[in-house]
Design a protein around this nucleic acid. Structure first.
Lengths: 251, 251
DNA sequence: TAAGATTTGTTCGTATGTATC
DNA sequence: GGATACATACGAACAAATCTT
């Protein structure tokens, strides 16, 4: 572990220590769950105080890179950054950016159809069953605004799950991120009121058609269904206030 | 500012404080540069020790949400998350994910052409001049592997700049993120050796054609040029080792 | 330039909480 | 339950940075 030169200015030491530990993890190719030196050892190795070391660990924890446990056998461990945390951290960036519904849908309309096409015929029975379970939330038309909202959130969960099943981690993350934003937005404001029977019928039809195409391995049809779906969803939300993300995402 | 109940278990207090401060910032709609209470006030407000408060501030700093300065008039301030930091934090997520060249180009081929099309005819003279300056790095064929590498990095900077000029922050970030990964990768491994005259001619031709289409406001042509460009670039890198991102991104 | 004021940054000793055996 | 091993929290003293005069 590189100690920052003892002659370094006596400021921002926690950050320096955090960066040193990061490099150390990379150099050794450490994996999730691997052990890091304990507080006591860090203190002697870096020649810095307990507080400084602890602040460094908080930095790494905040980024999701380490996890810490107390007790015997405890200590700090390399911690894989979860998708949830990555979404939250990226969400903080867009908090200040004034994202619009149009911005999000411009991308969804590009990406979601390709995702659907790429998944056609590749899903396992277990995965298909999971998706069916989410579609089941659409079984009957919503009787109240609350139910309508729940159905919309379930539909976004459907897209997130599709995204996770993608073999492409980048595509999966980008789509999951957008679904998360829309999902939060839907819960925050109460969109989609009042309940709308025609809308329900359409939404359900899309999901069922898509599942059929996915099972059949018909990529072109899956792509086309998703394209139509996105257009409809976009049109539906278009009237909403333009600016989203006026708060930080949950961690 | 919500104080976590004093009866809370005596663990993870810095994290609780950090979350409380986040909510406080959101509730008040604070903007970049707005002042946060000083250490002394936090200590009394939360009834916690200096160390705990400081660890909380390190957490927020690590996420890019606050900045801190010493001295009179100093203190902690709301700090807008920079694009650079957001890229680094998201990069940490993909560090563990084993991203492949194909993953990245699958998305570039979808997104970059639409970016080019959306920018056609919308750029200011100053923006066009900035882009020209980057194209100038391609003026003459590379004489060495180092020069070749510099040219490729310059070309990725060209794409990052295009992305920044996009009116869509989401599209801009996604494209910028991918360019950053490829740029780091190019510097890290020494791809594209030995120098290749034909490649240089092609790369230069793409950039010039694209600039012409952007100036002319010809969206369809810009899209098509970018599409071809992506296909070529993908093919060029396809032989490279599949796995990228075996280190953390620079902050 | 220098001194003083103000605010964060760092240290260290002590005490406490928590999980495992 | 007691012993052990580890992180967690506290607070007072001191260092460093930076603004003002």
């Amino acid at each position: 572990m590189d100690l920052p030169a003892k002659s370094e200015p006596k400021r921002r030491r926690p950050l320096q220590v955090a960066e040193a530990i990061k490099s150390w993890v990379v150099e050794r190719g450490l994996r999730r769950g691997d052990r890091l030196p304990g507080e006591a050892e860090m203190i002697t190795r870096f020649g810095m105080s307990k507080s400084t070391i602890r602040e460094a660990m908080r930095i790494l924890e905040a980024q999701g890179l380490v996890e810490t446990r107390t007790g015997p056998g405890g200590g700090s461990f390399v911690g894989e950054v979860t998708e949830e945390r990555a979404r939250a951290l990226l969400g903080n960036y867009f908090y200040f950016k004034g994202l619009s519904i149009d911005d999000i849908y411009a991308l969804r309309e590009l990406l979601e159809p390709e995702l659907a096409a790429s998944l056609a015929g590749t899903l396992t029975d277990a995965q298909l069953a999971d998706l069916d379970a989410l579609v089941a939330a659409y079984d009957s038309p919503a009787q109240s605004p609350e139910e309508e909202r729940d159905q919309h959130v379930a539909s976004l969960a459907f897209h997130r799950k599709l995204a996770r099943y993608s073999g492409n981690p980048l595509l999966g993350f980008f789509i999951g991120f957008m679904a998360q934003i829309l999902s939060d937005l839907t819960v925050y404001r109460r969109l989609y009121e009042p309940p709308n029977q025609t809308l329900w019928r359409k939404g359900r039809a899309y999901q069922l058609d898509l599942m059929a195409a996915l099972r059949a391995g018909d990529a072109d049809r899956a792509r086309q269904i998703m394209r139509d779906h996105m257009k409809t969803a976009h049109a539906m939300m278009q009237d909403q206030e333009a600016e989203v993300m006026r708060r930080f995402m949950a961690e």
